[in-house]
Design a protein around this nucleic acid. Structure first.
Lengths: 197, 197
DNA sequence: CCAATTCACATACGCAACGTATGTAGGCAC
DNA sequence: GTGCCTACATACGTTGCGTATGTGAATTGG
């Protein structure tokens, strides 16, 4: 073994993030006992405080990890579409659908903002917003979207998506509600499409 | 004094709600100590547990109160507009602006959803969503809005508004960001306007 | 190759806050 | 006027966070 030290450190960090992520995603941030989920990782709170400072520090690390995963997924989806507009719509719909996953919903859309405040001032700038912004920017450059402020549009869409996801996830009939929400969402996006003269 | 008993009870309930509302709105739900803000109301936690069961029960009561206030404000605004579409837009913009008020933002859009879950399954069905829905329904009936599911539209707009408000409130330059957001929001709504054939 | 140091992590302690179980005083019925 | 019910207060146990301190293993310098 060349660098057992750094490897071990990275491993413990990863274990803490994984265990915390699971706890936050299931019982929520407030309901997650540090003693419990650090023990589940075969460690103690001492390790957590050493690496992340406090509970919110771990939450930030977890969010950063999830955000990175979401960003790559979104990029892949928009790249796979036949044309730019379609890619944009697919990306937005995928965003809603990702927000349906309980872990993402709970950590990224409920506890995250409640504990750390608005996404825009999180230390790790949100990759998903950036991905959306890039797509919008390209669409505007290509004349496919009406003139609208890029970041504002990204944030409005982000907000609409996350709320839609919450609505769907808590619905009695998620499939039907999902169709309802996605349909309306497509209409909303269609309204932003540049009208051909 | 005719009914000192019921009056006193209503008064203590009101005092607890007021004190809790203030604490939740300033230091947040988690940061609000029940001992502290019940004492500030001249009471103890005993009264709170008696009337509201637990901390979340008080939060629900506070939310119900704020929601009622917001609903009347929104109704007044949409009624004051020169025409229906304008009234709708005004209502939406007002919704954003209300979400800028720290107390509303914190309680209704951050801590509320985090603690109680999605608005749609709160015991007290959200009056603001209902108000928005009514406006949308009328617009559709009058042929002023494209065919879109009412509730879905209301929720998407609600989500976009609350996120916009969060963004503005946490901005370094709130006035500029507000213009940015409201402009984009108007564009978004404009996309939902029925095209005259 | 060994000693000193550093660092990753564990242990121990204090404190704050929630929830519950119990106590009490004052109004209402009869 | 007496007894009960209820609105609230008091007292207690538990839990969980944050900090201060301890320890052993890995690294570095000679």
């Amino acid at each position: 073994m060349r660098k057992p030290r750094e490897e071990m450190i990275a491993e413990t960090r990863a274990k803490l993030i994984a265990s915390g992520r699971h706890a936050f995603g299931t019982v929520g941030y407030a309901g997650a006992s540090m003693d419990d989920f650090t023990a589940a990782a075969g460690l103690t709170r001492g390790a957590l405080y050493h690496h992340f400072g406090d509970k919110t520090g771990l939450l930030q690390a977890v969010i950063q990890q999830i955000d990175a995963e979401m960003t790559t997924r979104l990029n892949r989806i928009s790249a796979a579409a036949p044309n730019r507009w379609q890619g944009f719509v697919d990306e937005c719909v995928a965003y809603i659908e990702m927000a349906l996953e309980p872990e993402i919903q709970r950590i990224m859309f409920r506890d995250g903002p409640a504990v750390l405040g608005d996404v825009s001032q999180w230390p790790t700038s949100n990759g998903c917003i950036a991905a959306l912004s890039r797509s919008i920017e390209r669409l505007k450059a290509d004349g496919l979207m009406v003139d609208i402020d890029t970041e504002a549009a990204a944030r409005l869409i982000n907000g609409a998506s996350s709320h839609a996801a919450l609505w769907i996830a808590n619905s009695q009939t998620p499939e039907a509600t999902s169709r309802q929400a996605v349909d309306a969402f497509r209409r909303l996006l269609d309204g932003l499409r540049a009208r051909v003269a």
